[in-house]
Write a protein that binds this DNA or RNA. Sequence first.
DNA 1: CTCAAATCGGTTTTT
DNA 2: CCGATTTGAG
Length: 758
Amino acid sequence: MTHPLLIGLNAQQQRAVQAIHGPVLVLAGPGSGKTRVLTHRIAYLINEVGVRPYNILAVTFTNKAAREMRERIGNLIGESRAHDVMMGTFHSICARWLRRDIQHLQRANDFVVYDADDQQRVMKQILRELDLSEKQYNPRSIHARISAAKNEMIGVAEFARSVSSYFDEIVLRCYERYEKQLLANNALDFDDLLLKTVNLFEYHPDVLARYAERYVHVMVDEVQDTNRVQFSLINQVGAGHNNYFLIGDIQQSIYAWRGARLANVREFEEAHPDVQIIPLEQNYRSTQPILDVAQSIIDAAYDRRHTTKIWTDQQDGELVSLVEAYDHNEEARWVADEIMRIRGREGRSLDDFAVMYRTNAQSRAFEEAMISRNLRYRLVGGTRFYERKEIKDVVAYLRIIHNPHDEVSLLRVINVPGRSIGDRTQQELLQWARNLDVSIWDALELLATNEAQSPPISGRARNAVEQFQKLVASLRDLRHDLMLGELIQRLLERVPLQELLVAEYGEEEGAERWENILELQNVSMEYLALPTEDQLPRFLEEVALVSDVDSLDSNKEREPGVTLITLHQAKGLEYPVVFLAGLEEGLLPHGRSVDDPESIEEERRLLYVGTTRAKQRLYMLYAFKRATWGRTDITIPSRFLGDIPKDLLQRTPTREVKQMPVHAASQWQSSTPQRTRGTQPSTSSMWSGASGPVRPKRPEREPSAASYSAGDKVRHANFGEGVVVSSKMVGDDEEVTVAFPGKGVKKLLAAFAKLERV
DNA sequence: CTCAAATCGGTTTTT
DNA sequence: CCGATTTGAG
């Protein structure tokens, strides 16, 4: 008799669920139900094998995946039993462990976690102190280098040994200083969360032993995207019991640029000769035509050692559409229109649709098209909630309440709102603190308690600084006694941020940003259940570690909307209808990857990931012209399109035409998809170069006449009366520029802004 | 120190 | 093109 937890699983999946001893490597294609396998396996281990939830460690790629998996396990075997499984991303799990045990590394556990923005601020400060020009040494690239080193577990000392260029010399000096600074601020950056944990385990085997004993089963999803530190961590924690369960898809490896090593998988196999390798090849997600396209893209890969066949029994389905748009705006408009058509015809929810693209910047045109058609959408990525300036300001206050030595946060808000503590004063303070070898906070305290010998500032500035110190100190006094929500309330009462936002951004946007702060306060209510003194630290930790996809919840309450998302973020997700936009040379493959064959191959896999997100319908789009930075260029369709046999695609015109554009049709059909694997882009011969066939010319869309002209007087619901400065047609929409006395000049979409003529 | 004007420069992808 | 940062005047 089949066990209840195995019902509905195929033979390979059952094998994976039941492989309860020793190292297991599951090589799973897209849509093969690996999440399901992981879920059922955990439930099975607990219910049937008698493993305690507490003894299971499962690492997922996003926090969202962990949350959903926990919920599903709860449905299978009961919430209370699912509760104690240790689940999350590498980063969140390491943060939990460090919070508990970092004192073994002589560090306090009230550390704060620095995100990209904070890291950058530290770097800038360091460049300033080292007297290096920011122009010459870009803080981002220096930090990128340090980050890469940390991912490879190369500390300052080892980095020093491998310096081989002048740039490295500079990086080394910054690296040393950067580490010092983070230590002084009692801060860890993203990379430290992993690296310090590995260090902790390395230097303190007794601490490691506790974890290694506890976690009888170590499971890791998306193992192809792990970097060296993460792999070390897996090996450290898993070595005791040797019950590894690693799931991955080599063809979906898209994170080499942040240190992911495919070699981890190979090394794992070599280190464990007894490894069981279980393939999952059946795809339950997509129709055959979609998989055919995906397969043809991956089959053209330069390195075919890993290409495995995936198959489905869903033979029927629409052919994949290939669409050439005139420019990025038409591309977006066409997608929006097609969504409206299909939605009506097939009775679909907006949740069924996703638009995927290579760079975040591409989302803009889609947003505009959705807005003008009143289609609700959900933008994933871009500026995230916790990266918004006003949110970061509040968070910075909370951070110094938690850990006043956090210099980045302190300097961020010391003059927000304006307290007349300008750059000059700040630099003086900083210098003074450095000379005394104390943190800025310590320096402020010295100043406030009048213990200072020769303070660097006096008069008004000094008074302002002391006021600030008192403010923070008084809030700090409350931190253990007040619920997080109340603490934020007190903060907002004493720091007039609302007024500041209105002053800075105007009535409307100021109110919008204030809403964000109130939303933050709302989020803080989720921590009510924790003991009062734990609320703030846990909140700060999560603020730093949430990713944007995490917020893509499956909440039934929310309004349906089209998902706009980057290809990277789309990994692991699926949608009935998918539009892959901007399949052009320079975009996919991205221009930054063209001189490196390995990177090009990663771009290919990225497209593979994109195509395999689609369940029923897939559209691949490129534009004839694309505007970047206001400059419009003629494009070349992505070389990867040339790897798809023509009979797998249907060309779909973007507008009603009597006949297919002659050139486009004949070109496509006459091109023989003979692949010259890896050596040269096969499409280049088809499209680019003077000798190639002429690309279809499309007439410019006839602009319909603008209905407003300069000098017209109009009224707007929010801005009141104004005078039209100019008006132009942007596609189907009229963009009116209106000057509102006292409110400034605004660009408005006529269809949207509901202007009244006066 | 603050404000406005001018200049610069940036786009991969993310935990 | 748009935002962030720098510069110069008050």
